[in-house]
Amino acid sequence: MSEGPIILFDAMCVLCSANARFVLRYDRRGHFRLAAMQGEVGQALYRRFGIDPADPDTLIVVSGDQALRNSDAIFAIWRGLGWPWRMLCIFRLAPRGMRDPLYRLIARNRYRLFGRRETCWVPDAAQRERLL
């Protein structure tokens, strides 16, 4: 298994689970690993970076001792997926003061806007090795 960055996501959130499936589908190099915030690894990593795992306000991408949050985490995912997704990083030209409030607005309302699963999303057997 890759020792690359870890994407921590909300496995109960329909939008977040869709993002995790997107990453598993288009990350052909196996660059990323994923951890649900509901699991032991996800909760420990959220706590390590000062985020309440019971009420996270962001997904994070952890690489070594660094955690990227909010829009920076999304850009790290796009960059890590390579082309053509990498070109979406053009939106990084928008000031963080605009990007992050929009990200947080969506994150705070994610269940209302996209729905909440009854149970945590789990990848199929072929992709399960990438989930921590």
Rank of each mutant, 00 (worst) to 15 (best):
1 M>C: 05
2 S>R: 06
3 E>Y: 07
9 F>K: 07
9 F>H: 03
10 D>E: 03
10 D>H: 02
11 A>Y: 05
11 A>Q: 08
12 M>Q: 06
14 V>L: 12
14 V>K: 14
21 R>M: 12
21 R>W: 02
24 L>Y: 00
25 R>M: 10
27 D>T: 09
27 D>N: 06
28 R>I: 11
29 R>F: 13
30 G>V: 13
30 G>R: 09
30 G>Y: 04
30 G>L: 10
32 F>E: 00
41 V>A: 08
41 V>N: 00
42 G>P: 00
42 G>F: 00
43 Q>F: 03
43 Q>E: 10
44 A>M: 07
44 A>D: 10
45 L>I: 11
46 Y>E: 02
48 R>G: 10
49 F>C: 04
55 D>F: 07
58 T>V: 02
58 T>N: 04
60 I>T: 00
60 I>S: 00
61 V>G: 00
62 V>K: 06
63 S>Q: 14
64 G>P: 05
67 A>Q: 10
69 R>Y: 01
69 R>Q: 12
69 R>N: 05
69 R>P: 00
69 R>D: 02
70 N>D: 12
70 N>H: 11
71 S>C: 13
71 S>H: 12
71 S>M: 10
72 D>P: 02
72 D>F: 02
73 A>Q: 01
74 I>E: 04
74 I>H: 05
76 A>E: 03
76 A>C: 06
76 A>K: 03
78 W>C: 09
79 R>W: 04
79 R>T: 04
79 R>H: 07
81 L>G: 00
85 W>Q: 04
87 M>N: 08
91 F>Q: 09
92 R>Q: 15
93 L>C: 15
94 A>C: 13
94 A>V: 15
94 A>M: 14
94 A>Q: 11
95 P>V: 09
96 R>L: 09
99 R>G: 07
100 D>S: 08
101 P>G: 13
102 L>A: 14
103 Y>H: 01
105 L>S: 05
105 L>W: 14
107 A>E: 01
107 A>I: 01
107 A>W: 00
109 N>E: 06
112 R>T: 12
113 L>F: 14
114 F>I: 05
114 F>L: 06
114 F>W: 05
115 G>D: 13
115 G>E: 13
115 G>L: 10
115 G>H: 14
116 R>Y: 04
116 R>E: 10
117 R>V: 04
117 R>K: 12
117 R>E: 06
119 T>Q: 14
121 W>Y: 14
121 W>K: 11
123 P>M: 03
123 P>V: 02
123 P>D: 03
126 A>E: 15
126 A>V: 15
127 Q>K: 15
127 Q>H: 15
128 R>W: 08
128 R>A: 14
128 R>F: 08
129 E>W: 14
132 L>P: 09
